[in-house]
Amino acid sequence: MERIPILKMSGFLLVSIQVDMHDQLAMQLQDDLTNRIATSGARGVLIDISALEIVDSFIGRMLANIAAMSRVLDAETVVVGMQPAVAITLVELGMSMPGVRTALDVDRGMALLNASRAAGDTGHDDVPVS
């Protein structure tokens, strides 16, 4: 089956969604990413949606689910690169995506993850990323 690749980059997981996803593919990504967070011990996840032309309530919910599940697994998710037209439409659709952190691009998302990693999360041994 077709899958969205998950890359590892300086201790973080990076997903760049480059295709117009049908719903099963989105669900598969949610599962794959949750598993990868658990097995890799990564503390941060970047999801680049700059190539996505729309985010509807299903994809919005998938992003919110990934953010929630990563939090349970002690990792932080940042969604980066949302196009302005997509953001405008999401608001009108009624989706606020609470709990989803966003950044303008991958660099800024990475900076956000690095900053919050540096800022603390004390009480944890750093799990080496395999």
Binding site: E53, I54, V55, D56, S57, F58, Q83, A85, V86, I88, T89, E92, L93
Partner: peptide
Amino acid sequence: QTKIITAASE
């Protein structure tokens, strides 16, 4: 475009 495509998707 984005608005009508999103509505269509729903």
